[in-house]
Computed example of a mutant assay.
Amino acid sequence: MNPVSVTYPASATGAQTPISIDWRIAPVNVGYAVIFNAGASGSVTVDHTYDNVNDPSVTPVWFSSSAITANTEGTITVPYQFVRITVGSLAGGTLTFKLNQATQIGTT
């Protein structure tokens, strides 16, 4: 997975577009950051699923973090297939969600 950076406007609400993680890379090691840009405030969750959201025969089951109300970073070390942001509220600015996955270079 290439690094991902998505900025959501203050008008964003609800579940946002899922972002895929390469769950086949072992060990899974993804860093993420939730950034409330200058003047922004609100509440969001980072959600994940083990399901393939692109398979129309599957209804994904999503698991959510606790509410995030300040700049936060963390790691994902479990082979989830997709993650997303769900915006409960956002005002006064934008929110940026960043993901960066480590890979094993030189392995087959």
Rank of each mutant, 00 (worst) to 15 (best):
V4D: 05
S5C: 11
S5F: 08
V6C: 07
T13D: 10
G14T: 03
Q16G: 13
T17I: 10
P18L: 01
P18K: 14
I19G: 11
I19S: 13
W23S: 11
R24T: 11
I25S: 09
I25R: 03
I25H: 03
A26M: 00
N29P: 00
V30D: 03
G31N: 07
Y32R: 04
A33W: 09
V34C: 02
V34F: 03
V34W: 02
N37K: 15
A38G: 05
G39M: 06
S41A: 12
S43K: 14
V44R: 03
T45I: 07
D47P: 03
H48I: 02
H48M: 03
T49S: 08
Y50D: 13
Y50V: 10
N52C: 01
N52Q: 11
V53I: 06
V53W: 04
V53F: 01
P56D: 00
S57D: 14
S57Y: 07
W62M: 12
F63I: 10
S65V: 03
S65A: 05
S66M: 06
S66N: 13
I68P: 07
A70H: 11
A70C: 08
G74E: 02
T75C: 02
T77N: 08
V78E: 11
V78A: 10
P79L: 04
Q81E: 15
T86K: 14
A91G: 13
G92S: 14
N100M: 14
N100H: 08
N100Y: 13
Q101H: 01
Q101A: 01
A102F: 05
